[in-house]
Write a protein that binds this DNA or RNA. Structure first.
Lengths: 335, 335
DNA sequence: TTGCCTCATGTTAGCGATAACACCGCTTGG
DNA sequence: CCAAGCGGTGTTATCGCTAACATGAGGCAA
């Protein structure tokens, strides 16, 4: 069955079987117009009979471009990055691209640069970097010109090649919602300060308070974990003046909820809470969590579009897309 | 060094600059022994000066094998698969392999076969399939011989090329723990019945009850979601005879906890609950969840080892590794 | 000296595809 | 009636690398 050793059939084998030249096989494979219908059929039959599959390496070698897209992301099960990766892979597959992942344990410049390098070695056709901190963004500095790149969740001030969630708008909606519920002010448990997401959420929260003439309490700095939310909650629960808290993500909210519960502060009767992300569990916390939902699928899709645009037309100034999140109202805010 | 268009330096460019033949450059790159130290240095210098990076496509073409490992997984943010993917990517990168991901929306035979095909097109050097159902496993049936494959979380009865968590042992530990706490029997909220994980957990639970001479209540069938856990909980909360529940994962437990809370059944005073997975949030539920922790990193590492063993020595019968999970005791079981 | 083996290196021939061009037989238009 | 155009196909040259063999300079034993 094997034609040449263990290497599987090549184009010439198909050509021989179909009684044409290998070039004609190539034309059929690439949907070239000038091929007689009958020939096309014969070639297709031969391909099927041999179970032939084109060798991507050979094609990449001669064309200089692969059908591989590289993703650099944080190696974690954090909901945001994981959702983004899943959604992007899905979208890329539908467009006929394979996705190679190079993840990074820390978001420092060297790690990101190394991950990017691994992708360049593979001759990826384009690169998506999920780079939520400034240090991660710096890893892109040494990138050779001409490589299509899209940054997801990167520096919101970047002019091009960026897709991001409008963190500020999301935080505003959350804060606004709490103020509208009658709270005098809103406390904030923030994410790691070097993350753009965290910074944007702080900014949206602060600006909304300022505009409403409300007092701006100091943000409680945390990371993205439930553990940090719990610690923050232990402190906030002791302060009777705290009646509304906006946490930078849902897992922080989860930890916070537990701390409030332990101290006997009821949610939403005594304290209102709003999260961010809308993880699938948010609707089943005690109480169901009002939160802000970013559309990760939309972000991933936009990222792919931007990347493909750069790849087909390298002149095109890559755009900048900001996806607005929306508030999902449940029962963790008093009405 | 453009990825497309202007093609960057090739081996011959390095050779010219170093005043040697391209073959010598190749030797240096592949750490061939017979190269004079001085020459090696000259070549290295030339490589650095030009910023040369070898073209993987060319190498793959001539050697017939890439440095790419393919992973087939469920496209989701489910904790298990996501953790496994992250851990595997990490391990592979440390061994110098790139990882390409082909995810699948449904675990049916066709989808999995298609994902596998996409990887074969890329000439991956090996394949890891995170195939938690029988239907997914069937997608591997048509795999050409000679492709190294490892299945993670697949059919536990497979003799080789399998790495899995000992679901039965985990479930036994959970059930045992509940019985030891004095419960007459233990109810079970199960995962999707076509998942091996779910089946194993049911079996471990059932066998432990039988061995203890306890009554075996009908398992409440669910999926992996908090929503399903909530539904199950609404039913179980109404049944006063239910005092201990083992859920197939932590998200189910989360939903269950909420349902119990709403019905005024206290945990652990009235009802004890044990989950599975030990998601990072488990310690911060109300109350902190006693659960079973599988070591995903160990599973991923073992999978990689098995794969590399197959790749270097195709004769070696690929092994079979079962990783034992451990019980993490918190406060959701009455003492 | 001859012969042969050992380094260190060069030369040549592919790997399997695409690109560019050549070619052949038919229409067409002037 | 002949040049030009076009559709359909084949031929040849690459892409950048590794494998296999070739070469040539020394070293050393007989």
């Amino acid at each position: 069955m094997d034609i040449r050793g263990s290497r599987g059939p090549a184009m010439t084998d198909v050509a021989r079987l179909a009684g044409v030249s290998h070039q004609t096989v190539s034309r059929v494979l690439n949907d070239h117009p000038n091929v007689k219908e009958q020939t096309r059929l014969r070639v297709r039959a031969a391909i099927a009979e041999l179970g032939y599959r084109p060798n991507r390496a050979a094609r990449t070698l001669v064309t200089g471009r692969s059908q591989l897209l590289g993703v650099v992301t944080l190696n974690s099960t954090l909901f945001g990055p994981a959702s983004l990766l899943a959604a992007f892979e899905q979208a890329a597959a539908e467009s006929g691209f394979a996705v190679s992942v190079a993840s990074v344990v820390r978001l420092d410049r060297e790690s990101v640069a190394a991950a990017v390098d691994r992708h360049l070695d593979q001759r990826v056709a384009g690169l998506v970097v999920i780079a939520p901190t400034a240090s991660a963004g710096e890893g892109l500095a040494a990138l050779p010109a001409g490589v299509p790149v899209v940054t997801i969740d990167g520096d919101p001030n970047r002019a091009h090649g960026l897709v991001t969630v409008d963190q500020v708008a999301g935080a505003r909606a959350a804060t606004r919602h709490l103020l509208d519920a009658g709270h005098r002010t809103v406390w904030h448990v923030s994410g790691p300060p070097d993350w753009y997401d965290a910074a944007g959420r702080i900014e949206g929260w602060r600006r909304t308070l300022l505009e409403a003439g409300a007092e701006v309490p100091p943000p409680v700095q945390a990371d993205w974990s439930a553990a940090a939310g719990y610690s923050a909650g232990q402190m906030l629960a002791r302060m009777p003046e705290v009646t509304a808290v906006f946490t930078a993500n849902d897992h922080l909210a989860l930890g916070l909820l537990r701390a409030l519960y332990e101290r006997g502060r009821r949610v939403p009767e005594d304290v209102s809470v709003v999260g961010f992300d809308d993880v699938p569990e948010a609707a089943f916390l005690i109480p169901p969590l009002t939160t802000v939902r970013p559309d990760f699928a939309a972000v991933a899709l936009a990222g792919l579009d931007l990347l493909l645009a750069q790849m087909t037309d390298s002149e095109a100034a890559p755009g900048r897309i900001v996806v607005k999140p929306r508030l999902v109202v449940r029962n963790s805010v008093r009405t």
